[in-house]
């Protein structure tokens, strides 16, 4: 199966890194979209469908929490599995994200293999 993925992070370096991990994890990527913040992500999702979203939290403009909130409030978009990639490992943040519907969570810094495990766990549900 070929996946369409959206990576949301204000850091171009981290977007490159995450994209590379997804590719090296053996997922066939037919499209990999990138957005610098939540607003850009929502605009893109207005015209493109994706199979998974990976998002940072701390971003200028619309941050990851607000993005998650907007996704979960939308009947169609809430079904897209979302993985949060963030430096914030505090309990309060993680609890909030879980209630906002994040399906997976990984804290920076992480090993590429750990992200692969989260991807397999989250996207594994999509194998037809």
């Amino acid at each position: 199966m070929a996946y369409r993925v959206l990576i949301v992070d204000d850091s171009p370096a981290m977007r490159s890194f995450v994209k590379r991990v997804i590719e090296l994890s053996g997922f066939d990527l037919s499209d990999c979209f990138e957005a610098g913040d939540g607003a850009e992500a929502l605009k893109l999702l207005g015209s493109e469908w994706v199979d998974a979203i990976l998002t940072d939290i701390n971003m200028p403009g619309m941050d990851g929490e607000e993005l998650l909130g907007r996704l979960s409030a939308d009947d169609l978009l809430r079904s897209i599995p979302t993985i949060v990639i963030s430096t914030d490992a505090t309990r309060s943040r993680m609890d909030r994200l879980a209630t906002l519907g994040a399906r997976g969570y990984i804290t920076k810094p992480f090993l590429p293999e750990d992200l692969r495990a989260v991807l397999e766990h989250t996207l594994g549900d999509l194998h037809a």
């Binding site: 991990v21 090296l24 994890s25 590429p112 293999e113 692969r116």
Partner: peptide, 9 residues
């Protein structure tokens, strides 16, 4: 391994 495009299992 990372630079060669290989992850560890």
């Amino acid at each position: 391994l990372w630079k060669s495009g290989i992850l560890v299992h």
